[in-house]
Amino acid sequence: MLIGVPKEIKVREYRVGMTPGSVREAVRHHGHEVLVETGAGAGIGCDDRDYGAAGAQVVDTADEVFARAEMVVKVKEPQPEEIARLREGQVLFTYLHLAPDPDQTRGLLDSGVTAIAYETVTDDQGRLPLLAPMSEVAGRMASQVGACCLEKEQGGAGVLLGGVPGVAPGRVTVLGGGVVGTNAARIALGLGADVTILDKSPTRLAELDDHFGPRLKTLFATMETVEQAVDRADLVIGAVLVPGASAPKLVTRDMLGRMRPGSVLVDVAIDQGGCFETSRPTTHDNPTYMEQGMVHYCVANMPGAVPRTSTQALNNATLPRVLALADKGWRNALSADPHLLNGLNLHAGRLTCAPVAEAQGLDYVDPIGFDQIRKT
């Protein structure tokens, strides 16, 4: 198969779909061809010579990558100019996060591309193995950036999360006890903060309690406990996820009015529409804004700020699936692996992901056989 790896063009996105090591595996050990756009790996410290040595053909333009590739492997959702280059019969393998993005959904449907989303691929335990590496990065970053945003120069209340002897530490509330929330709590605890994590699963709360012990406070998530935990927090980290669907709005505008001015909200769920009512996507160029006296950090590609770590972690998870799609062809690969099939979001102008269809009020096709249209 001819695999294409374009340079990412989203603002301040430095990750790349395949590392030179991944290219080498695909070319030397599996017999595929890989086209890489010139400069695609610059953000992770890999130049065109590294890709050439790994066996890739380095080409001058994204137009050539998209025009020739049978499968395009990316990191972030395709931007409008990239959607215009996609075609029917071509496979796109990347993060999509379609639920809150009807414009992208319409563009991909019109293109006819077969789009497989990293974030809805599952495993035997029902986990999301291609989302997990970036969730780990984003969760750890959330506490770091939240601590920085609490500084007075950044608009924050001037709170040091770890405190000092004789002064209480900052209070961190983490909404969601999944991969993002667990990693956010780990870093916040390491900084010395007073951390509370909320989740709707008693089993998950018990696991967190066993893992972290009394250093971490756990609460079952209800409207009342969320309100109480947010009210007293210096830093709130939104870490909720409904696979493939829009994130629920857990923190309302009214709740912000009861928080101390200069408190910080970091919305890691912004890719799926955000879990704060006042959230709107930001970029690494302008990552924060003030709303009702609160600092909001809502960067939609947080791991892009640490591209060397993020790209390697992502490739560790995606490479086996890339190779499966290339070795077997996408139809046979999806037929052989129901967990990879769960990643199929669109095919030939038809939507195949029920949560996206529900979020946008669209019809969808059951991906098993593509033979039955279900009305949402």
Results as ranks from 00 to 15, higher is better:
173 T>D: 11
173 T>L: 08
175 L>K: 08
176 G>T: 11
177 G>L: 06
177 G>Y: 04
178 G>Y: 06
182 T>S: 10
183 N>H: 15
183 N>M: 12
185 A>E: 14
185 A>P: 09
189 L>W: 06
189 L>C: 10
189 L>T: 08
193 A>P: 07
194 D>P: 07
196 T>F: 01
196 T>N: 07
199 D>F: 03
200 K>M: 14
201 S>H: 10
201 S>D: 08
202 P>Q: 08
202 P>I: 09
205 L>N: 12
208 L>E: 11
209 D>A: 09
211 H>G: 14
212 F>T: 08
212 F>D: 10
213 G>E: 10
215 R>F: 04
216 L>K: 13
217 K>S: 14
217 K>Q: 11
218 T>P: 10
218 T>G: 12
218 T>C: 15
220 F>G: 04
222 T>C: 05
223 M>S: 14
228 Q>S: 14
229 A>T: 02
231 D>Y: 02
232 R>Q: 15
232 R>S: 15
233 A>K: 08
235 L>H: 13
235 L>I: 09
235 L>Q: 15
239 A>C: 12
241 L>P: 06
242 V>F: 02
246 S>M: 15
248 P>L: 05
248 P>M: 01
250 L>R: 09
252 T>I: 03
253 R>P: 03
253 R>C: 07
254 D>Y: 11
256 L>R: 01
257 G>Y: 07
258 R>E: 00
259 M>T: 13
263 S>V: 04
264 V>N: 13
264 V>K: 10
268 V>W: 01
269 A>W: 02
269 A>Q: 01
270 I>L: 02
272 Q>M: 06
274 G>V: 08
276 F>W: 09
278 T>H: 00
279 S>P: 08
279 S>Q: 04
279 S>W: 06
280 R>V: 02
280 R>Q: 13
281 P>G: 04
281 P>N: 00
282 T>K: 13
